[in-house]
Design a protein around this nucleic acid. Structure first.
Lengths: 197, 197
DNA sequence: AAATATTTGGAATGATCGTTCCAAATATTG
DNA sequence: CAATATTTGGAACGATCATTCCAAATATTT
């Protein structure tokens, strides 16, 4: 009996995400959203509820995509030290090839909204724990295999990696220069080597 | 012949900075600005030009204050490794004591505006170079004194420090926990030690 | 004290904000 | 093909946006 939805929901989320990612929550208007997605105002409100709900959907869409890419590395690269290096090289590649200098949507959203929006704050905390768990698991794996020293706790190393990642995404907004970013990860990841591993 | 300005300009900048810092550029309205500063609309426009100009003044006011605090450490603490550690401990203290979870105004501004506002982008780049020069000078000083190893270039170490600092200010917005932040700086600053210094 | 130059408060501006609403369009069901 | 349930486009909503404007207030100078 019902008329079906004509638009591709994932396509709308992808386009909406791109816009929010580029201009932020407050910097994006519903008018721009209709132009970016091709949907009319009523369709957006009917299908997603409103600006805030659409944003949350886009943010989760983004995070899910990012996590997928990160987890994909674990399957492709066995040695953890190489895997971690590859993850950061991936980030650098993202930064230097993005002409809009969007940075990381989660970082952008955190600095803009976390102290003003509880729902967003919850997602940020959830993502932080998720990312740190992934890094922690990797490091434990590397320590067990002898690829990473055991002088520092895996949780602490993981937090440092996550922190470095956030920093890079901020840094790249101002200076998306490959050599500079690679210098940073070389120093930041040097904590995984030596120290009597 | 002229009637003098009645308000304290620095006071206005301080209050304006606090508001922009808390809610961001797009998240702050002129109406809120009048309430926060106590000035009327016309006084703000008359004295500062407009929202964007006032914001730029506030941003520079903030950066000047921050740089002053940082440079002050160089006079108080001779040994560079201790000085750097103190700088990061200072940052942690700022983060955990700020009930508004404002983070760093420059980081917030970078993620929100740098890819959309050339004037802000210029200030961000200027501040980045400034901070990195300070850290580079410190590290050179520490290397000369034998407090820091010379296996890594001072410029690269400095960029890593700046990157870690930005990361912390983002991290603290979501999780302003002293122990966690101290774990991060312990790992991040471990690159200054050992490695055959 | 009068004249002058500047600041000030508050109303008014047009534009844009997110949201609502409704009639027209449309795909599925009987 | 008719009935139905849903989506759709676009107008309209009140609220708020940054900004402008002007008369009233005020401190200095003459």
């Amino acid at each position: 009996m019902p008329k079906e939805v004509l638009f591709d929901e994932e396509d709308v989320l992808r386009r909406g995400t791109e816009l929010f990612w580029t201009k932020g929550y407050n910097g994006t208007s519903m008018d721009e959203l209709t132009r970016a997605t091709g949907l009319s105002r009523s369709s957006i409100y009917n299908s997603f509820g409103g600006k805030h709900e659409l944003f949350m959907r886009c943010l989760r869409y983004y995070l899910n995509d990012q996590e997928g890419q990160l987890r994909g590395l674990a399957d492709k690269i066995r040695h953890v030290d190489q895997r971690i290096r590859a993850a950061f090289q991936y980030a650098v590649e993202d930064i230097v090839t993005d002409r809009m200098r969007k940075g990381c949507m989660m970082v952008n959203t955190t600095t803009e909204m976390v102290n003003q929006d509880k729902e967003i704050a919850a997602v940020a905390a959830e993502n932080m724990e998720n990312m740190e768990r992934i890094f922690t698991d990797w490091i434990k794996e590397g320590q067990a295999a002898g690829d990473i020293h055991t002088k520092l706790a895996p949780q602490a190393l993981a937090k440092h990696l996550f922190n470095t990642y956030s920093g890079l995404k901020v840094y790249g907004k101002t200076r998306p220069d490959r050599k500079t970013l690679e210098d940073i990860i070389t120093v930041a990841l040097s904590v995984l080597e030596g120290q009597g591993a």
